[in-house]
């Protein structure tokens, strides 16, 4: 329900955005009821694939400072300099489900409980995606179709990497299972805040022209008004301009909770469809966690 704190499940398909195709019907079905948009990232420094995985996840949790400190890109000024997610978001209880060892270390560093995805999946004795979905929902206090008063976690981030076989198909099945369990009228649907985030992973020069961030819309615009276009939200941090925005290959995001999110015009989760029809346009990836935390009542209102 809109007037109770949500519990968030974030499915993060790391590097999987380019592999979504029309057969992934559950992903598109989610997009068709969700609020869709792009999450912009900064330019990548020279890095290994493992470093990229951690860095981009860190952006999603607005923890890039922690990443810089942990990776030695920035010198530590003292002990306890890295804040946990719970410290930053009013005691938020969060878990990370991943098989990436690099991400496991980083997750622990920022105070996440880390669970192994492969172990979670192994608990299946029926349809694998149904069992995984049930297990993920159980972590959030949803059991037997009911919403328990107390949950282990307020939010669960599931990282599914590009090197894990059948990545997109797994996510598609998982989304299908979750949506089946969160039917209208159920206790799950009223409290579950579901986000699907798909990134492009490692990018090449070719991607610059294939997946460009273009806002505002260029179609149907009267050129006489071009001079009025203000600095875009995704290019700003507070009142200052961000100087390192990568204007291609943003993450794709679809967020859905019954009576809590907006439904835009998107019916297919693809770069092209989002460019033409999404309702959320582009925001910086590091503001994503702030939006999620607000829906969990873990981010206070600024002002009165």
């Amino acid at each position: 329900m809109a007037d109770k704190p949500s519990r968030a499940l974030v499915l993060y398909g790391d590097g999987l955005a380019r592999f979504v195709d029309p057969s992934n019907s559950h992903i598109h079905s989610l997009a068709s009821v969700a609020s869709c948009g792009f999450l912009s990232l900064p330019h990548a420094p020279p890095e290994t694939e493992n470093e990229r995985v951690v860095r981009e996840f860190a952006h999603l949790l607005d923890a890039s400072e922690a990443y810089k400190l942990a990776s030695g890109l920035k010198a530590k000024a003292g002990e306890n300099e890295i804040s946990t997610l719970a410290e930053r978001f009013m005691g938020l209880k969060a878990a990370l489900v991943t098989d990436s060892s690099a991400l496991t270390s980083f997750g622990k560093l920022i105070g996440l409980d880390v669970l192994r995805l492969c172990e979670l999946c192994q608990k299946s004795d029926t349809v694998p995606s149904d069992a995984t979905a049930s297990e993920l929902l159980r972590l959030l206090g949803f059991e037997g179709g009911k919403c328990l008063d107390v949950s282990l976690y307020d939010s669960v981030f599931v990282h599914i990497g590009v090197d894990e076989h059948k990545g997109v198909r797994n996510i598609d099945s998982l989304v299908g299972s979750i949506i089946r369990m969160a039917q209208p009228g159920s206790e799950i649907v009223s409290r579950l805040h579901l986000s699907l985030v798909l990134s492009y992973g490692s990018v090449t020069d070719k991607d610059v022209s294939v997946f460009p961030v273009k806002t505002p819309q260029e179609e149907g615009i009267n050129p006489a008004f071009a001079g009025l276009v203000p600095r875009q939200s995704y290019t700003m941090r507070g009142e200052k301009t961000r100087d390192d925005v990568r204007d291609y290959c943003p993450m794709l995001v679809a967020q859905w909770q019954h009576a809590v999110t907006r439904k835009d015009l998107v019916d297919t989760l693809s770069f092209e469809a989002l460019q033409k029809l999404c309702g959320n346009l582009v925001i910086p990836a590091d503001r994503f966690i702030h939006e999620v935390a607000f829906k969990l009542w873990k981010a206070p209102k600024y002002g009165a």
Binding site: P216, Q217, V229
Partner: peptide
């Protein structure tokens, strides 16, 4: 409305730009 406005020529901007 909130959905149609996303197609506008101003894109998405901070209130400080208004």
């Amino acid at each position: 409305n909130e959905i149609a406005a996303a197609r506008g020529c101003l894109g998405r901007f901070h209130g400080g730009e208004m």
